[in-house]
Write a protein that binds this DNA or RNA. Structure first.
Length: 599
RNA sequence: GCGCCCAUAGCUCAGCCGGAUAGAGCAACGGAUUUCUAAUCCGUAGGUCCCAGGUUCGAGUCCUGGUGGGCGUACCA
């Protein structure tokens, strides 16, 4: 990335120098905005006022004159507390295009810094009793994109997935399978493994409800019995608990079935991840980590971080930081959720020598992670300060919340398939004679672009509404809109007869308003990447992509490119297109979206 | 009860460390196609930024108090 921000850096230097020349003070903060109107860039004099102790309009006035002396600045106009800058046109063109043309697929990205920070990003964390739904799609997309953003800014990233493969939920699927599915396999019924197992989870739920209803019918005096109350006396629930007990005792038959069914589910998950284009460096299984943490708690008990209550349970009092009291070891000595997370977090850090960890987990666990990080801090782990919970909001449906028990969840695999089908239809309507295999691959790409972009264009913490109608629309603020801009450029470059290394152009001819606006977008890109990575917020990339694609589409309509009369103009516009394609592709890459050469 | 989060156009969402006249898409309406791909472009209309105070030269943004909604507050995960 070094050298890529030359233009912006140089302008900042020019501003800094101007302040020094006029006021004799080196400013602490030079703020340059991309204002979309008034000019190319705007220097904020309000911020300078703090250092200079003068009225912003007076500062702007004085600086404007000084700034215009520099060759980079065509015009500097003081307006209220701003200096609106119009850049020297050829310098803007050179500064906007050359970095992208030269750097190609490293444009906007930084080499790994040395010594590099090594950060683990944990995301997805599915349960192995049912297939993944839209909520998982959000953590999958977010986690992957955040990992890419960190990598792009020079961090060494480990992608981890902590799979919850044990517990009562899997036992429910197992029991239903034992009772009603013996001999069946995913192959025998032609189903993906995770869906196959999920069906037995649903079957358990169905049987349980039938039993509950029967009970209420047979015991009118108990007709108001709650689900939780009935669970205590349910035969099906007792069966599931028995399976769990036998699992914990190491019962071979139960373990064998557990391994078999988990294997099916994991195969299904792998397929889903492959389709989504998501990979992990490390998969942790909770069955292998759930015992961790006890020794750390014992040691913490000795050190006085925790204390033992009269009833034997071990707890920590965090009420001084408003986190209340938290039990970390039951009175029978077994661990709770937080215990294994303490152990797992320490283990991960030691395994990879991590400088920090990011947990991409839903916002309903904010309290849990606050407690976890506070405990780690009190245990003396310095890296605890570099642990962050990226708490994303839930995904709701127009009808309300998704509830797996009520079958109102949006299944990830089905969703991808459905959107792919629509994309496929769109492709066929445009190119009836398209090669079938190419069409399918492209349809999947476009579908994933639509889906990922939709999810990643709302900021992580926002509780978002999933609108099925909007999700299958490929117009407006969508992934396909951005893809289309890229594809258009590819087609044009193909038709242009230019070689890939032919990057010479005359920067003086790019003077159209639509070109200026587009070039300013290109200049802004590296800065947006930095910001998005620092904020762990991919939606900043989506916003930029939309603005850039929009600027390109406008430019494309406003002036002829391939058909420009003047060869020098034609060439320069093609180079602008190529630079734009590079930038769009880089931005899309950060969202985990692959480009297509035609739509 | 206590804690955290949210409230911006009819709908879905942006809004940078407090800075210029609060933006985009969808939906509505009007236009652009002898094409370089119309999955596009141009335009019109649409706002009490939940309410009331406060801080500030300046508040959608920060503070306090309300109202409404979500989540959490297990010896569940």
């Amino acid at each position: 990335m070094e050298g890529q921000r030359v233009l912006l850096d140089r302008i900042e230097q020019v501003c800094r120098k101007a302040v020094e020349n006029v006021f004799g003070i080196s400013p602490t903060r030079v703020t340059l905005d991309f204002p979309d109107q008034f000019g190319d860039l705007a220097l904020n004099a309000f911020h300078l006022a703090k250092d200079l102790r003068k009225a912003p309009p007076a500062i702007a006035q004085a600086l404007a004159e000084e700034l215009e002396k520099d060759a980079l600045i065509e015009r500097a106009t003081p307006v209220k507390g701003y200096v609106n800058l119009v850049l020297h046109r050829p310098a803007l063109a050179e500064g906007a295009l050359s970095p992208a043309l030269r750097a190609g697929d490293s444009f906007g990205f930084r080499e790994r810094t040395d010594p590099s920070q090594r950060i683990m990003v944990e995301f997805s964390s599915p349960n192995t009793n049912k297939p993944q739904h839209l909520g998982h799609v959000r953590t999958n997309c977010l986690g992957d994109s955040v990992a890419r953003l960190l990598e792009a800014t020079g961090t060494d990233v480990i992608r981890a997935n902590l799979v919850n493969d044990r517990g009562i939920h899997i036992c429910k699927s197992m029991l239903a399978y034992q009772r009603e599915g013996q001999g069946m396999t995913p192959e025998s019924v032609g189903k993906k493994g995770d869906h196959f197992v999920g069906d037995f989870y649903v079957l358990f739920e169905t049987r349980f409800r039938e039993e509950w209803k029967r009970y209420r019918d047979e015991h009118p005096e108990q007709s108001e019995i709650s689900r939780d109350e009935f669970a205590k006396i349910s035969e099906w629930m007792a069966g599931a608990r028995d399976v769990l007990r036998r699992w914990e005792e190491g019962d071979e038959e139960v373990l064998a079935l557990w391994k078999l069914m988990n294997g099916w589910v994991m195969e299904g998950f792998e397929e889903t991840y492959r389709t989504l284009g998501i990979r992990f460096d490390r998969i942790y299984l909770e069955s292998e980590t759930y015992q961790l943490g006890k020794e750390i708690v014992s040691e913490g008990l000795r050190k006085g971080v925790f204390h033992r209550r009269d009833d034997g349970a071990v707890e920590i009092d965090l009420s001084d930081v408003k986190l209340d009291r938290k039990v970390v070891l039951r009175s029978d000595g077994t661990s709770v959720y937080i215990t294994q997370d303490i152990g797992t977090t320490v283990m991960k850090t030691e395994e990879y020598g991590l400088d920090g960890q990011i947990f991409v987990v839903g916002n309903e666990q904010i309290y849990h992670f606050n407690v976890l990080f506070e405990i780690l801090k009190r245990l003396g782990y310095e890296w605890a300060a570099n642990c962050r919970h990226l708490a994303y909001g839930m995904v709701n449906l127009p009808e309300g919340k998704m509830k797996s028990r009520e079958g109102t969840v949006v299944d990830a695999d089905n969703l991808i398939e459905e959107v792919s089908r629509l994309a496929h239809k769109e492709i066929l309507s445009r190119q009836p004679d398209v090669d079938e295999k190419a069409a399918e691959e492209r349809a999947l790409n476009i579908a994933l672009a639509a889906l990922k972009f939709m999810i990643l264009s709302v900021s992580p913490k926002t509780t978002m509404l999933y609108d099925p109608k909007a999700s299958v629309s490929f117009e407006g603020d969508t992934g396909p809109y951005v893809l289309y801009a890229f594809a258009r450029i590819q087609r044009m470059l193909e038709d242009s007869g230019l070689g890939p290394d032919d990057v010479e152009f005359d920067p003086a001819v790019l003077t159209d308003e639509s070109e200026i606006r587009l070039m300013l977008k290109l200049v802004e890109f590296p800065r947006v990447v930095e910001k998005a990575a620092a904020d762990l917020n991919p939606s900043l990339i989506s916003s930029w992509l939309l603005a850039c694609a929009r600027a390109y589409h406008s430019h494309n309509r406003a002036v002829p490119i391939l058909k420009a009369d003047d060869p020098a103009v034609r060439k320069a516009r093609l180079m602008l297109s190529r630079a734009t394609a590079t930038a769009l592709s880089q931005g899309l890459k950060l969202l985990g979206i692959k480009t297509v050469d035609r739509m």
